[in-house]
């Protein structure tokens, strides 16, 4: 396995990790009836945007532009998650949603984004992935890439439908308790 294949495997794993996180958020929403707040939805959108950088790498070959997109999205997502954490950081101000392993989902997003930023910086250390002759060898793993494309499309479609049912086309309520379009 050469350097290029390693980078491709790393991109596939990163994308798969983000998809798993988004699926967990969906499962929590459906299973525990934990409706996402506006900031939660922005964090989901931010994580989806991080995934776009890895998707670009898998489709067109590794480029610094694609990693930059993922890093921008990481910074955005962590900003939203920090904002939500700060809203609840003072003791007695309560929290939003359920906790997993003692941490709320928005705190997990901070941890995940910090790890993703470090991970992308590590991937950027490998200069050989940007060489033109390496970039032309993006042929292997097309089947896995196709499955990942379908998975991310599925996750995004779920988010579109659930958000539409929850808020319609207007601004989402700060503390949603029901799906606006279903429970009228």
């Amino acid at each position: 396995m050469n350097n290029h294949h390693l980078i491709k495997a790393a991109n596939i794993l990163s994308l798969l990790g983000i998809i798993i996180v988004l699926v967990i958020a969906g499962v929590v929403q459906l299973q525990w009836h934990d409706l996402p707040c506006p900031l939660c939805l922005l964090q989901r959108a931010g994580l989806s945007a991080v995934a776009l950088g890895f998707l670009l790498n898998l489709r067109f070959g590794a480029r610094s532009t694609h990693y930059a997109i993922s890093l921008f999205a990481c910074i955005f997502t962590v900003s939203v998650a920090v904002r939500q954490t700060l809203l609840h950081i003072v003791p007695g101000t309560g929290s939003y949603g359920s906790a997993i392993f003692g941490l709320h989902l928005y705190v997990w997003v901070i941890v995940i984004c910090a790890m993703l930023t470090l991970w992308i910086a590590l991937l950027l250390l490998c200069n050989k992935q940007f060489l033109p002759e390496r970039a032309k060898t993006v042929k292997t793993g097309k089947f896995i890439t196709m499955i990942l494309f379908l998975l991310i499309v599925g996750v995004m479609l779920f988010n579109i439908v659930s958000t539409y049912l929850e808020c319609g086309l207007k601004q989402c309520p700060d503390n949603p308790v029901k799906y606006e379009l279903i429970s009228q």
Binding site: S48, A49, L52, V153, M156, I160, L169, Q171
Partner: peptide, 19 residues
């Protein structure tokens, strides 16, 4: 509004898919 933003993200994925 969030629906439109998610829709834009989906559009990005489709454009990447197309190439």
């Amino acid at each position: 509004m969030m629906v439109l933003l998610f829709g834009l993200l989906l559009l990005c994925v489709l454009i990447i898919w197309i190439g």
